[in-house]
Computed example of a mutant assay.
Amino acid sequence: MRYLITGTAGFIGFHLAHSLLQEGHHVLGVDNFSPYYDVELKEDRNALLERFEHFKVSRLPLEDSRALNSVWDAFQPEVVIHLAAQAGVRYSIDHPEAYISSNIVGSFNVLEAARRFKPHHLMAASTSSAYGANTHMPFEENDRAVHPITLYAATKSATELMGHSYAHLFGVPTTFFRFFTVYGPWGRPDMALFKFAKAILADEPIDVYGDGEMSRDFTYVDDLVEAIVRLAQVAPNEANRVEGDSLSPVAPFRLVNIGGGKPSPLMDYIGELERALGLSAKKNYLPMQDGDVPHTTASAELLERLIDYKPHTPISLGVPAFVGWYRQRYRV
């Protein structure tokens, strides 16, 4: 099949594209190689993808609708997976304009291209942050989620609503998935595991927010990719409606959590990192940060009913896998 993936130089997009290429699919990556974090890391991910005969990358910002339409028209993708976004909860507090430009305008251009070229399935990434101030656990797709506590979350919720309206008006089967704290090799340097590993190896203290009382539904990246690949084959329609579905009553649109439903305490996560590194962390305990939530837990029931699969890799395996990659890449 022919997949167009936005954000292939990014953490998740790279892993997804690599998996699909290994299966023999054709992949067109669209990425602007944003300097939000180390561009060399993005270039190295892209270099690995370019080893595959059936991979091509277009270096362009999604805000450039004319360029996006041109490469989309030439490639004629059957499935489009929109992962590119300005990420980071706390970064959005000080740099809101980046989120409006990338997450709102960029996503609008993807929707407009889908309206024009009609892929078999449009898929797009959202986030567990969309649940905002919701305290009902586990987070369920049909929960009312109207209280985002960061602009990042608000932009992601907005793109979900935009996606639903386009699915209703123009009939493009559309799936949005909400990610839950994805981690693993080739991860982003601004994420906790990466920052913790770097600090511990340098014998520097790590900042532990929420006084270490937080928990997260950590999702290993290979599990996430497997779920996306399987969901790509389940374009939303009445024929595949399941119990407890989030399938819209007026559009071929579905919202799906991708998380295992087994949260781990933050201190356990840090403990696994200490074991994998063979070092103890110096911990600087701090209050919760603005825009953060104390706990996340995904309901994985809908995901499992749709694809007979849910993320399952424990942090006792996932964290050492990250450490192995980190040590090899940075020779530490």
Rank of each mutant, 00 (worst) to 15 (best):
G24A: 08
A85V: 01
S126T: 11
A114W: 12
V146D: 14
L68N: 09
G132C: 09
M123C: 07
L48M: 06
I100S: 10
R116F: 10
K118L: 15
A85C: 03
V105Q: 12
S101W: 01
V89E: 05
G106Q: 02
P35D: 12
W72A: 10
H25R: 07
S128Y: 03
H120Q: 14
V89K: 03
N134V: 12
Y99F: 14
K56A: 09
V146A: 04
A67Q: 10
A145H: 06
P138H: 07
Y91I: 06
L48Y: 00
D143Q: 11
A125Q: 05
L111N: 08
A67R: 13
A114H: 13
L111T: 11
Y131W: 08
D143S: 03
Y91H: 11
K42A: 12
N103C: 03
V39T: 15
E97P: 00
V71K: 05
V80S: 08
A124H: 10
P119Y: 08
A74T: 12
E50D: 01
P96D: 09
N109L: 10
L62K: 05
D44Q: 14
I104H: 11
L41E: 12
F117M: 15
D44Y: 07
V79H: 05
L62N: 07
R90D: 04
P77C: 11
H136M: 13
S126Q: 06
L83Y: 01
H26Y: 09
E40R: 15
P138W: 04
A125E: 04
V39N: 06
S129W: 05
V89H: 01
R144V: 14
F108E: 12
S65T: 09
E112T: 11
